[in-house]
Design a protein around this nucleic acid. Structure first.
Lengths: 343, 343
DNA sequence: CTGAAAGCGCTAACAA
DNA sequence: TTGTTAGCGCTTTCAG
């Protein structure tokens, strides 16, 4: 005869539907004795709430916003694709998700974007932006206004209520080092470490983990200091050329940034791609072709679809004070070789 | 003023709620002209269905069953854990999931279990069982009775309507070979391939993929014929001892079966674990300790939580003829090293 | 502090 | 072939 409903519960507890509801939602204005009676009845008849029905009655809609970098590299495009895919599905679940863009390098504009979110219109925000004091404060302001926040891909360790949805970058760096160390076994030489900028916290953490593990391969491997491309092709070419001159025996290259296209183009042009073990981050279309043609050896990734869905689940759960399945929200550090590449 | 509802749609199309419902659910008995009118109105007012409300009104409950092997190794235990975790969450979503057990090696008992499922009580079944003609027929019978089926972890390629939830085992075998090949670079010798039984399709496919890629490392590496343990410790010990005598230079070991505990115990006792590169399947508690202490070098896994949730989503979607997010249901071949191990 | 009653968006008899 | 109406399980006024 089906699961017990609020009606059954009301009858079992000898109260009305309204009181049952008050207890279920922990609303004030119910005598403790009554609360206890209802709670006992819940256990007695083994009542479980139908959350979908509750949502319906509340006729609540969720408006979620992703704040993404303005610079549109392949990785950000993938993220936008994943958001669009999720959004299409969520439309029938009373959830709207939209995207706002702000330049990563300009904290003021990011803050301006965040402050501009109307709390009546927004229930939660997933923010992908470098950690800065300004952004941290803007997040605090959002939370003060009752808007939930998750840190998306870029962690915000100083913003205490913003859950982080992304991989452990130190562990990712360790993984990269282990791969380079093992794939180069039998060889001896130096390892190039490249990134866009070491100002980014991700790069700092990845480098930290990388060094922890690369040390275990000393003295066979020496990791060189991090070199920053600043996203500038000319500079990148100069850096790499100089490195190759100074260090003739480069056996490994670690690309810490997700936007590897231009850097890989130069590395290939210099002719080291096939002889050195090259490890990078994120399975973008270009990274995929480099993996297939052998110029890259392994990729470390976090599934963008998973990142997006997890953020949405977290924000919705926060808004409704509901539980999530913890194991589902753990973002895995994936290792992609040619053999286990999806598709 | 919120999203348009069936009421708005009825008004816009100039029909009643009932007719709207008929069109939305593609029920018979509506004039084509009326159908067109409603469909035009859907586009005009940009109507999207509220599926949760539909579920509520239908007051449908989903009863799903997992049929698992009777033999309770660590991997099956993990699966049961993941099911329990999902079940706890799904209780409030009108979905009940239960577990049935049947001996993997006895197709008759499996068939008996499947045939015994009452279709009134069961909407969908996830089956983890070796592919046999008997099981294939039992699956066809289930489908004839309107019970949806997914093949869980073990594929059922001959059962045409049963979606497969699990990894591509050929690709997994290829991945294992690549890992062993690269981790042993600089060494030369033979590679041991062990499994419980080559009767299992997974093992056959893994072996196939393994050979494809290990060949690219010839003549440095020679893969030995698959050796079967039959889950018998004494036999396993004998096999491994003999292999070590005949092939003094074993540089790699590939364990194709998910239950590696006993085999690893013997491999460690023989003293080859630390010198050879050992790759196995599934991140079970024991596999985890072997990875940590260095006796294993890499694990290839499929996330059990993901497997379980994906099966449930698929079965629910089938029962309601709804869409799923394709990218979410793709099971990834994960590579686990010590550095990227979860937790 | 508690209860009665009117919905939320959709479905399903039963009439017409 | 179409419309009317009474719910699904829960929330939310508004009285008491």
């Amino acid at each position: 005869m089906g699961k017990p409903t609020t009606k059954d519960l009301a009858k079992a507890a000898g109260v009305s539907l309204a009181t049952v509801d008050r207890v279920l939602n922990a609303r004030a204005g119910v005598r403790q004795a009554t609360v206890d009676r209802v709670q006992k009845a819940i256990r007695d008849i083994n009542y479980v709430r139908d959350l979908a029905a509750a949502d319906l009655a509340r006729r609540k809609e969720y408006n979620l916003v992703f704040v993404l970098p303005e610079h549109d590299d392949e990785y950000v495009q993938q993220i936008r694709g994943a958001i669009a895919e999720a959004a299409a599905f969520l439309a029938s679940e009373r959830t709207q998700v939209s995207i706002l863009r702000a330049p990563s390098s300009d904290p003021h504009k990011i803050v301006h974007t965040l402050d501009g979110l109307a709390c009546a219109q927004t229930d939660g925000v997933a923010i992908m932006a470098p950690e800065t004091p300004q952004v941290r404060d803007a997040i605090a302001r959002l939370e003060a206004r009752g808007i939930d926040v998750v840190a998306f891909v870029s962690s915000q360790p100083t913003a205490k209520n913003a859950d982080y949805v992304g991989i452990n970058n130190t562990a990712a760096g360790r993984t990269a080092a282990q791969l380079i160390g093992r794939f180069t076994s039998g060889q001896q030489g130096s390892v190039l470490v490249l990134t866009e900028t070491m100002l980014a916290r991700d790069s700092q953490e990845r480098r930290l983990g990388f060094d922890q593990v690369i040390a275990s391969f000393a003295p066979r491997l020496q990791a060189m200091p991090s070199m920053e491309t600043y996203g500038d092709p000319a500079r990148t070419a100069r850096i790499i050329e100089r490195a190759l001159q100074n260090q003739p025996s480069i056996v490994g290259i670690y690309l810490m940034h997700h936007d590897i296209g231009e850097t890989m183009r130069i590395i290939r042009a210099e002719g080291v791609a096939m002889s050195a073990v090259v490890v990078g981050h994120e399975l973008t279309p270009r990274a995929r072709t480099y993996l297939l043609d052998g110029s890259m050896d392994a990729l470390i990734t976090q599934d963008v679809g998973h990142l997006v869905r997890s953020s949405i689940r977290l924000l919705r759960a926060k808004a409704t004070r509901r539980e999530t399945v913890a194991s589902q929200e753990r973002i895995r550090i994936e290792i992609i070789l040619r053999e286990n590449m999806p598709e």
